[in-house]
Design a protein around this nucleic acid. Sequence first.
DNA 1: AGTATATACGGAGCAATGCTCCGTTTAACA
DNA 2: TGTTAAACGGAGCATTGCTCCGTATATACT
Lengths: 190, 190
Amino acid sequence: MIDEKKPRRRPRSDGQRNREHLLGVAKTAFTAGELDIPLDEIARRAGVGIGTLYRHFPNRDALIEAVYRAELDRLADAAPALAAQYPPVEALRAWMLLFVDYIAAKHVIAPALNGLVEGTSALYAQSGMILQNAIDRLVESAVASGDFKAEIEPLDLLRALAGVSNFSAGPGWETSAKRLVDILIAGSRV
Amino acid sequence: MIDEKKPRRRPRSDGQRNREHLLGVAKTAFTAGELDIPLDEIARRAGVGIGTLYRHFPNRDALIEAVYRAELDRLADAAPALAAQYPPVEALRAWMLLFVDYIAAKHVIAPALNGLVEGTSALYAQSGMILQNAIDRLVESAVASGDFKAEIEPLDLLRALAGVSNFSAGPGWETSAKRLVDILIAGSRV
DNA sequence: AGTATATACGGAGCAATGCTCCGTTTAACA
DNA sequence: TGTTAAACGGAGCATTGCTCCGTATATACT
């Protein structure tokens, strides 16, 4: 009843193009710190009408989500490789440091995490799942290998890390974040 | 030149009253989760004009700051008593748990921390200082007593804690936060 | 008490922004 | 080349933040 598959027409090429443009402009703006740039402005820079923007992304959150989704995916995808290459705890450590680097390099992700934090939008929840899944497996291995306490909750670590990432404090920021990674790991050991 | 002390008139009583009303209404609304309630609405509920609200609090941030300031102060003030009563590490642990409880009980503070996180407003910075000062001393003692590593940066712990507090996840939230406290402490030990 | 004046009040109204609606245009398919 | 689903675009409405300024009143002084 629900699965009526209609013979859809191939998506229009101009639609795709505009979507790309919008994402590109938005990403540039967001990473440049223009976090609350008006959506009209994004549409203008992308050379499309405001209506077009809203058809592709029903609200601001959806746009942000779309912009950072690729980044989050890449971050999550890096986990298996690290897990294969290093012993469990080192893999986790490497991944957490990667997490920090990501935010340090471009100021990407942080806003998405902030939104994720709010918990308002179902979209963010999905992004959160991607990351949670990645860290879940890493922690799982560390527990299985006997290095970590069994009661360690992976999400706790992710939350803490997200918290630190949010602070856009001065130059010491990055080292501070890396210090926290070590504290968290030391605290998780058996 | 700058310190011209003018013989100010005593503040008007109706002004004080209205200020109190506004704070009361705002606090009720905020803790009830109506985080982005329109300022007009707050003014209406408090039975004052919108102009009055803006005279007392020049913008939304200032209002939030004012609402949570007292709470943050109380939290910070609790630190010395704990330090006097318990050994250093236990005092720190107790304070961190208190921090969690505060947020668990009423959903106060979290928004303020979020703002603090943004670093946009000088006001929030001041609030942040209050908390930082409190935790600084607690950690200092723990380091001095030889329980904590010397390189522990108090702000790191505060950041992590703030990060966790932000997530308003399901019922497991509080226990999750408390778990993290223990991880952080374990990871900070020598 | 009466008066002067700093202080506070209140809300109309402007500007910015999010989002919708719908007539027009165009790419896909036959 | 004609038909049509899909996409476009921007006028315009609703909401919200904030300002401005004429009005009201508590305080201080005589």
